[in-house]
């Protein structure tokens, strides 16, 4: 344990905690992404469909993230809103290979953006255009077009292409979230 770490223990200092909501349609890879972000000893080997939600924690170099990994199945999507108020950032995951349901994803995103607990807050949204490794995956640019992300004017947002199984692209997204937290725009 280095000197600084000891000091932080002594002073009871903790990393700033950020509450993140992980949203997106079922099967888009939310749980896989969060699992990959956890320390390797805490990662689970097989990912099962989430029922309801589960709370996971991971740390970046300067932040501590508490993620509410929500279930994406249709019947649970209306339950997301119970957790909007406390969310300080949103990770929205899209399966870039699932063209068929891209419109559904857009619909859910629009509902989210128009929700009273979200609408007027400058809450950062990180988009993962996931499963980029699959053959019929579309590019992240295409995804942002399909979801009309350019219309989001009052919230900081960012989109990364990712492969959750290999863990590619995830760090870029987390870094963006972390940088934003130190920027003044973070103040909600």
């Amino acid at each position: 344990m280095g000197l600084l770490d000891r000091l932080s223990v002594l002073l009871g200092l903790k990393k700033k905690e950020v509450h993140v909501l992980c949203l997106g349609l079922d099967n888009s890879g939310k749980t896989t992404i969060i699992n990959k972000l956890k320390p390797s000893n805490a990662q689970s080997q097989n990912i099962l469909p989430t029922i309801g939600f589960s709370i996971e924690k991971f740390k970046s170099s300067s932040l501590s993230f508490t993620v509410f990994d929500m279930s994406g199945q249709g019947r649970y999507r209306n339950l997301w809103e119970h957790y909007y108020k406390e969310g300080q950032a949103i990770i929205f995951v899209i399966d870039s290979s699932d063209r068929l349901r891209m419109v559904v994803a857009k619909e859910e995103l629009d509902t989210l953006l128009n929700h009273p607990d979200i609408k007027h807050r400058r809450i950062p949204i990180l988009f993962f255009a996931n499963k980029m490794d699959l053959r019929d995956a579309v590019t992240s640019v295409k995804v942002s077009q399909l979801l009309c992300l350019e219309n989001i004017k009052d919230k900081p947002w960012h989109i990364c292409a990712s492969d959750a199984i290999k863990g590619e692209g995830l760090q870029e997204g987390v870094d963006w979230l972390q940088d934003l937290s130190t920027a003044t725009t973070w103040k909600l």
Binding site: T50, I51, G52, F53, S71
Partner: peptide
Amino acid sequence: EDVIIVTSSLTK
């Protein structure tokens, strides 16, 4: 209502 929301938390 919707108490199944805790299913994953409990299975964990």
